[in-house]
Write a protein that binds this DNA or RNA. Structure first.
Length: 478
RNA sequence: GGCCCCGUCGUCUAGCGGUUAGGACACUGGCCUCUCACGCCGGUAACACGGGUUCGAGUCCCGUCGGGGUCACCA
């Protein structure tokens, strides 16, 4: 049977970093096995679902490059891929279960149940749905009154399944509630909607966060009741905040960790950089730290997944992004410039491609993100260059004027400013240890920068001469 | 609390009965050097604890402790 997996986010917020990892693992599994990757929108929580969230999720998936074969915007043979457009399917399945005596109508109201729940809480007892309507028949139904459809859970025995990463998981049935399949308005709840869809969409493996293992038994029971074979399951360990708490937005902010994929994009991460951090979170292939997409796909396997939850490490995430971005093997020069450009333009600069490319070549190895790259490249294009007052005060002193003047004279004699020519022309006569600081502030306005020969080369002769003239004037004025 | 799961350096992890317990990030000493990075060489640092099984346990079993997940007409 061909492999079919899905990623099924609910549009109740941005795409969470943990969700992105789940999506990645599913995508890798599908690509690895030449299968189909389905994107399905679980928007049955009408109170929280928004069009804006839907948009953010789609955009994030595209930015990450996790393309789907079936789903919203691309369609497919099992559509629609949005649950609110599939209500008839759930109603039909639910009716069938009721007819077969595997589910039943429950007329107890939410208020009524909430009251019971509060009572249980007050008595410090666990609330358990009293089987109010479990054993009633259609003769007891109240015409015109709202009802939900509940699953008739087994009262004894146990349910188990073989998880691809955790192995066999078995849980007793006796504490299973008669969970709700269909709300009184006909909208399905998560467990039911997901199972009905997974059956009709012929999903063969479900990979998701470990927080879902608890409702897997209920889903297994549902497959059974529906007379459909259950897919395989693969649960992934949780991604936690540095303190071991849930990586919620609030918790993450305390550690300056972005939680939405769009935030990583805005912070100047490259999709491949982020993906490389994520793929090594809960999965490994020996000691290999970074992968090209091709390698990820070829090497991915659930046997490489770990079972222990992990804590997010922003420093490492940045380091991995840095490694991926600066390496031509994983990020081409052209790709780097294409992604960096918007961040440069956001600073009000508009260099042409050739000029930008030269500057990025010079700073690339020292920028962890495109935001840092844009900052590092700023003085190449800003006129007049912005000079750091502290650096000016310490380096552009009167004594530096003659040194800068001599540098200006030497550069003026040259035709091309490539690094080799500059080294040949200047190194014999300049003591860079002494001339460096002043030249650096003159040319870049900063106390730290890439090597001066490289900087001059990327700056171009005209700009170099102009900036030296400015600096000489500043230095002379003291 | 019930049920389920997990436990190797600070962090991500390798390990699948016999290893000086390896790598990466972080931290740190040094080299390189016009500064900052990059790069290179080196260092600190881990098998939660207690019982078993075994000639031999990080690897297998049990217990303890610790951590996490979940108990909705949310997903």
């Amino acid at each position: 049977m061909s492999v079919r997996v899905r990623f099924a986010p609910s549009p109740t917020g941005y795409l969470h970093i943990g969700g992105a990892r789940t999506a990645l693992f599913n995508w890798l599994y599908a690509r690895r096995h030449g299968g189909v990757f389905v994107l399905r929108v679980e928007d049955t929580d009408q109170a929280r679902s928004t069009e804006e969230s839907y948009r953010a999720i789609i955009d994030s998936m595209r930015w990450l490059g996790l393309d789907w074969d079936e789903g919203p915007e691309v369609g497919g043979p099992h559509g629609p891929y949005t649950q609110m457009e599939r209500l008839a399917s759930y109603a039909q399945a639910a009716d069938r279960l009721v007819d077969e005596g595997k589910a039943y109508r429950c007329y107890a109201t939410k208020d009524e149940l909430d009251a019971l729940r509060r009572d249980a809480e007050r008595q410090k007892k666990q609330f358990f749905y009293p089987h109010l309507w479990r054993d009633k028949t259609s003769k007891d139904w109240i015409a015109g009154a709202p009802y939900v459809i509940r699953f008739k859970s087994p009262l004894s025995g146990e349910t188990s399944f073989d998880d691809e990463v955790f192995g066999r998981i078995t849980t007793p049935n006796d504490h299973l509630q008669d969970f709700v399949l269909l709300r009184s308005d006909g909208v399905p709840l998560y467990n039911f909607g997901a199972v009905v869809d997974d059956v009709t969409m012929k999903i063969t493996l479900v990979a998701r966060g470990r927080d879902h293992v608890v409702n897997t038994p209920q889903q297994v029971l549902l497959y059974e009741a529906l007379g459909a074979p259950a897919p395989r399951f693969a649960h992934l360990p949780m991604m936690l905040a540095p303190d071991g708490k849930k990586l919620s937005k609030r918790e993450a902010e305390r550690y300056d960790i972005p939680v939405s994929v769009t935030a990583y994009r805005d912070r100047g991460f490259s999709p491949d950089g982020l993906l490389n951090y994520l793929v090594r979170f809960g999965w490994s292939h020996g000691d290999q730290e970074t992968f090209t997409r091709r390698e990820m796909i070829d090497l991915f396997d659930f046997s490489g997944a770990s079972r222990a939850d992990g804590k997010f490490d922003m420093k490492k995430c940045l380091a991995i992004n840095h490694k991926i971005s600066k390496d031509e093997r994983t990020t081409s020069r052209h790709e780097y410039a294409r992604r960096a450009r918007p961040f440069v333009e956001a600073r009000g600069l508009a260099p042409d491609d050739a000029h930008l490319g030269r500057a990025l070549d010079v700073v690339r190895e020292r920028a962890r993100t495109f935001v840092e790259a844009a900052d590092a490249v700023d003085y190449f294009f800003r006129e007049p260059v912005a000079r750091d007052p502290v650096a000016v005060k310490s380096a552009l002193v009167p004594a530096a004027a003659p040194v800068l003047a001599r540098l200006r004279a030497e550069v003026a004699k040259l035709d091309a400013l490539d690094p080799e020519t500059l080294h040949a022309a200047l190194d014999a006569t300049f003591d860079w240890k002494q001339a460096g600081p002043a030249a650096r502030v003159a040319l870049t306005g900063r106390a730290a920068s890439p090597g001066l020969h490289e900087v001059m080369s990327a700056l171009g002769k005209a700009t170099v001469l102009a900036r030296l003239d400015e600096a000489i004037a500043i230095a002379s004025a003291g």
